Computed example of a mutant assay.
Amino acid sequence: METIPASSVRAAKDIRSVFSRLRRRLREVAALGDLTPSQTSVLSRLERGVPASASALATLERVRPQSMAATLAAIQEHGLIQRQPDPADGRRQLISLTEAGREAIAGSRRQREEWLARSLTDHYTEAERQTIIEALGLLDRLVEL
């Protein structure tokens, strides 16, 4: 078995740690009202434009159907999703974003991007920002493996 270089182990730990903290910080910057991270995640999935059933969302989010039902009920109370009968199976309902849901997601994304751009401007030089861009290009290759 091939030994993993110490630099790879350190890079893996550092990447995971930095991305975890950055994800947390971005959630803080533009939280969608009093929605939980799991509720926000469901909204983000629905933003892709394809209506989904509660069971499909539960599978995608890796939660029990009962948990997804509670999540959807909470989101619906905010008027961010709507339910319609599935034309292929009248027993099921398809969930999609309302216009308010789309606006909430877009506003949240805009706030996160503005905070991140402002932080990069205020705390990094142009050369450092170029280094970040280059490093992200390298990291992007990870998701292509």
Rank of each mutant, 00 (worst) to 15 (best):
P37V: 13
S8W: 07
R23G: 08
T3P: 04
D34A: 13
A12K: 10
R25I: 09
T3A: 09
V9W: 11
I15N: 11
L22R: 10
L22Y: 05
A30M: 08
P37M: 07
L26K: 00
P5D: 11
L32T: 04
R10G: 01
P5G: 07
R25A: 11
F19P: 01
V29W: 01
T36L: 10
A12D: 13
S17R: 15
A30S: 07
R10K: 12
A30W: 00
A12L: 14
S8H: 11
S7D: 14
A31H: 07
L32R: 03
E2D: 05
V29G: 00
I4G: 01
I4M: 10
T3R: 03
F19N: 10
R24D: 15
V29Q: 00
T3F: 03
A31Y: 02
L35Y: 12
A31D: 07
P37R: 06
A11N: 13
M1S: 05
A31C: 08
A6D: 15
T3L: 06
L26N: 01
A31F: 06
P37Q: 06
A6I: 11
D34K: 05
L32N: 01
L26G: 01
R16S: 14
A30C: 07
P5H: 04
S17D: 12
V18P: 00
A30N: 01
A31P: 03
M1L: 05
P5K: 03
L35E: 04
R21M: 12
G33Y: 10
R23A: 15
T3N: 08
I4S: 02
K13G: 04
S20H: 15
L26E: 01
P37A: 06
A6V: 14
V9T: 14
R27S: 12
L35I: 12
A30Y: 01
G33C: 13
F19M: 14
S20Y: 15
A31Q: 10
V18N: 04
E28Y: 03
A11Q: 08
L22D: 02
R16Q: 06
G33L: 09
V9R: 14
